[in-house]
């Protein structure tokens, strides 16, 4: 209870101090907001865009398309060759008749297929290697490409992998950015609190002489830092949410060109609270470091 009262007093005092220097507060809050908005926005964009890739199954497999009018013997030969190997987990044979039948059954395609003079599809074999590393798949696919019966080898998950790699790279970038700007944020509160301690030197000294504990003296400064961080976090949230709405339709249009539907959303409730929590904590941290450096 006493502890609560003490913190309540310190938090109120810190708010008064924030309001007492509106320009300094504004500058610090804007600096913090920008330092937070960049990585937070990047994170949001990434997590929403990367969800596109995860919808597609990135099964480690590839498809061998044989020659369009190749003989069934050739298909059998390829199947036998694959079965002899020890490094194949599974093969699925798609005979051209079956493919044609499936296409005929497909809504809207029946007429087109009926108009065809002959079956345009080749036999195909879907191969799942035992080793699902991208390198192993590449190697097997390259080997199959050399086979005379094989017209085309298509690695199905190719774009998903590339996309995932790209997202991974971007994620690392965002992490790096977040670290650097997080340090920036701590620096901003560190410095703001340093100035506060300097202007309140006399108050600090007198309080100490009159029997104030270190905790009593520190608390308002720590709250000040946390409040700056929190305010910065709120402004950063507004920036990110605003940018999301602003970018929503151009991004949706762009995504549509690539055959996806993507509607950017403002940060989720969990993400929003995480942002505010991190912001408040980093503000508090900057203040705590500043206290260590500048008190006594």
């Amino acid at each position: 209870m006493n502890w609560l009262v003490a913190h309540g007093r310190a938090a109120r005092l810190a708010l008064v101090r924030l309001a007492a220097a509106p320009l300094n507060t504004l500058l610090a809050v804007l600096g913090i907001a920008i330092a937070l908005a960049l990585p937070a926005g990047g994170y949001e964009l990434l997590s929403q865009v990367s969800a596109l890739g995860s919808g597609t199954v990135a099964t480690p497999q590839f498809t061998l398309f044989l020659k369009v009018d190749g003989e069934r013997k050739a298909t059998q030969a390829v199947v036998d060759r694959l079965k002899e190997r020890g490094d194949i987990a599974k093969i699925l044979i798609l005979l051209r008749e079956d493919t044609l039948a499936r296409m005929k059954a497909a809504e809207g395609l029946a007429d087109v297929i009926a108009a065809l003079q002959k079956n345009p599809f080749p036999d195909a074999i879907v191969v799942t290697p035992a080793d699902d590393s991208p390198a192993a798949i590449e190697k097997l696919a390259a080997e199959a490409r050399q086979w005379r019966e094989v017209e085309l080898v298509q690695i199905d998950a190719h774009w998903v992998r590339r996309f995932a790699a790209l997202v991974n790279l971007a994620r690392t970038g965002v992490l790096l950015l977040a670290t650097l700007l997080g340090i920036g944020l701590v620096t901003i509160t560190f410095n703001t609190i340093r100035l506060q301690v300097m202007t309140r030197q006399r108050e600090v000294e007198v309080s100490w002489l009159l029997g104030a504990t270190d905790g009593f003296i520190r608390r308002p400064f720590l709250w000040h830092g946390a409040q700056l961080g929190l305010l910065g976090g709120i402004v950063a949230w507004l920036i990110v949410a605003g940018a999301t709405l602003w970018l929503q339709s151009p991004v949706a249009e762009l995504a549509q060109l690539y055959g996806f539907s993507l509607s950017l959303q403002p940060p989720s409730v969990v993400d929003s609270f995480a942002l505010l929590g991190v912001a408040g904590f980093l503000g508090w941290l900057g203040a705590a470091l500043s206290m260590r450096q500048h008190l006594h």
């Binding site: 006399r202 000294e205 100490w208 002489l209 009159l210 029997g211 104030a212 504990t213």
Partner: peptide, 16 residues
Amino acid sequence: LPYLRRNMGLVFQDQK
């Protein structure tokens, strides 16, 4: 020290 000081009243030469 703070707890020691709380039972004292201090009037400083420069008042503070």
